[in-house]
């Protein structure tokens, strides 16, 4: 259903745009935390096992 709140096509399109933006933001945040974790973990592993 494209307009579940019966708010009209313009408002429904705006809501859909906002929802997609929030979804992309959350995905980006999860990826960012993952990458930061790997980077910091990698640095600690190298520090713990010097060549």
């Amino acid at each position: 259903m494209s307009d579940p709140w019966n708010e009209g096509p313009k408002a429904a399109a705006a809501r859909r745009g906002r929802s997609i933006a929030i979804a992309l933001g959350l995905v980006a945040f999860v990826v960012l935390v993952f990458v930061v974790t790997i980077v910091k973990l990698g640095a600690n592993v190298i520090a713990a096992h010097p060549a």
């Binding site: 313009k10 906002r18 933006a21």
Partner: peptide
């Protein structure tokens, strides 16, 4: 907020 918005005001876009 969406339902309270006056008809003349466009809905918030991202």
């Amino acid at each position: 907020a969406v339902h309270d918005m006056p008809a003349s005001v466009a809905p918030a876009r991202w």
